[in-house]
C-alpha cells in the first residue's frame, strides 16, 4: 500500500486558495475564513493525533485489533493534511507568529 501525499493535499490547497480569494474579494468575512480553517485543523488533528495516540497505546499494551490497519492509514493521510493545514495556520497568523521567532518588539512603542 502506497500512501498518497499529493492527492489528499490538492483539495485543501484549492480550498484554501478559494476561501482566501473570497476573503480578499470581500465576499466572506475574515473571521469566517480564519475560523473555517481553524475548524479544519482541529478536525484533522483530532483524527490524525487521536489515531496515532490510539495506535501508540495499542502497541504499548500489545493489543491487535482489526481496525489497526485503517487507523494507521487514516493517521498517515490526515497527518499529511494536518501538516499542510498547519502551514496555512502559520500563514493566517503570520503577524503574531513572527514575534515568536524574531525578538518581540516593544508593544508600548506601537501603543504610544
Amino acid at each position: 500500500m502506497v500512501y498518497d501525499i499529493i492527492l489528499p493535499a490538492i483539495p485543501f490547497i484549492g480550498g484554501y486558495a478559494l476561501t482566501y480569494s473570497l476573503y480578499k474579494m470581500n465576499l466572506i468575512k475574515r473571521s469566517i475564513h480564519i475560523n473555517l480553517w481553524n475548524l479544519i485543523i482541529l478536525l484533522s488533528f483530532i483524527i490524525s493525533g487521536g489515531a496515532g495516540f490510539l495506535l501508540l497505546i495499542f502497541m504499548e499494551l500489545g493489543i491487535k485489533l482489526p481496525i489497526n490497519q485503517p487507523l494507521l492509514y487514516w493517521h498517515v493521510e490526515l497527518g499529511v493534511t494536518l501538516a499542510l493545514v498547519t502551514i496555512f495556520h502559520f500563514h493566517i497568523y503570520w503577524k503574531s507568529a513572527k514575534t515568536m521567532f524574531i525578538a518581540a518588539k516593544r508593544r508600548s512603542k506601537n501603543k504610544t
Binding site: M1, F58, M59, L65, L72, V76
Partner: peptide, 18 residues
C-alpha cells in the same frame, strides 16, 4: 503469528504500511 510479530497485527503488502 501476526499477533506475535507485527506490532499492529496486520499483514501488509509491498511497500508496506510502516
Amino acid at each position: 503469528a501476526c499477533a506475535l510479530s507485527c506490532p499492529y497485527g496486520i499483514s501488509c503488502t509491498a511497500p508496506g504500511q510502516c
